[in-house]
Design a protein around this nucleic acid. Structure first.
Lengths: 213, 213
DNA sequence: CGGTCCTTTGAATTTCCTCAAACAAAGTGG
DNA sequence: CCACTTTGTTTGAGGAAATTCAAAGGACCG
């Protein structure tokens, strides 16, 4: 059932993408992806970069036994699709309805300042992530996650989560149950409010910052 | 007591470094560092790159409560000291008697192919490390560690560990006790032999590879 | 309204950590 | 050269944190 749904969604997204190709003043048209649709896959040849116009994307890789490591979430305004290798090591999927603009790579030369900046941002992100996942406990990981989300989409102390608990767990190296229990604990301690499962209101950001060191 | 010892070692290394500055045909002289000596520190202004002539180096960062995340080990022939930021986010320390050659950064332009290559290698390393630390259990982490060491210093199935169990633990996100117990378990299962604490003989590499997926 | 998917909560279990002690190796000073 | 210290490693016992398994609740969709 799920695969069928996914296949349909993928097809729809494809037509949708084509339908949305219209001429604008900007260099590249916007492609649109429905929720859960793949933008590129592990094993494909690395190609274009993508800039998000609206929506949100997850970047992940799979282990052979099905375990998944989400390495990044990306939101409107951010660029993704930069990979160190010639073939893609990761999957990129839209988490919600998402529009992306393709950015052509500078044809021949590889070391443009833009690409370098992307590599550096990726490096910093990965090293930060490594610290969180490697040396912190559940509460600290979730706190770091909330603070990161706040930084990147601040709607006055309110964050919207386009991803599922499973995504968060696979991003932070823990199970959905632990994610859920940690959310509950923050709620019980009055640090957050959960108006709905996908919206988090940060009541005491200083407590989160304290937890992260 | 320990600080005193360290201070002496640091001073010795310093004089040693100066003593070893001799003219060779290569562009830069070799500086020498005694075991446990700092090569650069978190907070310093990012500067030169270093190429290891002999020895081994650990790269790490500290949390305010003393927890430590080792992000990389480097061996002879490898280059380290590349950082994404203008100030160093990490410490670099010699783990054994180590000789490094300073590499001057290309003066003005930032995006040389060499620097790009370093950034990419760092990115791949960090992403690989993230997967190990984020989604694997103790046995798998140690297995991945052994395989990585094998790849990088293959003396026919024998690896020499210049780092302590604490270093390994802080690299893999576990305690020294768990590291030690995992080593013991591999030994009991006939996968490795431990001629000494710092030498590991890999008897069944295929078992390690199986564990890593 | 019924079904699916996601989330939450509880109970049992596993894994890893903490604390403690013994052991081993290397260096120091008498 | 040998006691003695220091540092690093191993091993055991108990405990804490997170996972697994199970079930119930909630939101969304046709």
């Amino acid at each position: 059932m799920q695969t069928a749904t996914l296949a349909v969604a993928r097809n729809l997204a494809h037509t949708h993408a084509i339908a949305l190709v219209h001429s604008v003043s900007r260099p590249q048209p916007v492609s649109s992806f429905l929720p859960e649709c793949e933008i590129y896959a592990q094993g494909e040849r690395s190609g274009a970069l993508y800039q998000i116009e609206f929506g949100a994307v997850r970047i992940y890789r799979l282990l052979s036994d099905g375990r998944r490591q989400v390495v990044a979430f990306h939101f409107a305004g951010e660029t993704f699709g930069f990979e160190a290798d010639r073939t893609r090591s990761f999957f990129a999927e839209a988490m919600v309805h998402t529009g992306v603009r393709t950015i052509d790579r500078p044809a021949n030369g590889q070391a443009t300042p833009e690409l370098m900046a992307l590599a550096l941002r990726g490096l910093i992100r990965a090293q930060e992530h490594l610290l969180v996942v490697g040396r912190q406990r559940a509460m600290e990981r979730i706190a770091a996650f909330f603070l990161d989300m706040m930084d990147r989409q601040d709607d006055r102390g309110q964050i919207e989560l386009p991803m599922t608990r499973l995504d968060i767990g696979d991003y932070l190296g823990m199970t959905i149950e632990t994610v859920s229990r940690t959310f509950a604990r923050f709620r019980e301690e009055g640090i957050i409010r959960l108006p709905s499962t996908r919206i988090v209101e940060i009541l005491k950001p200083e407590r989160l910052r304290f937890l992260c060191q």
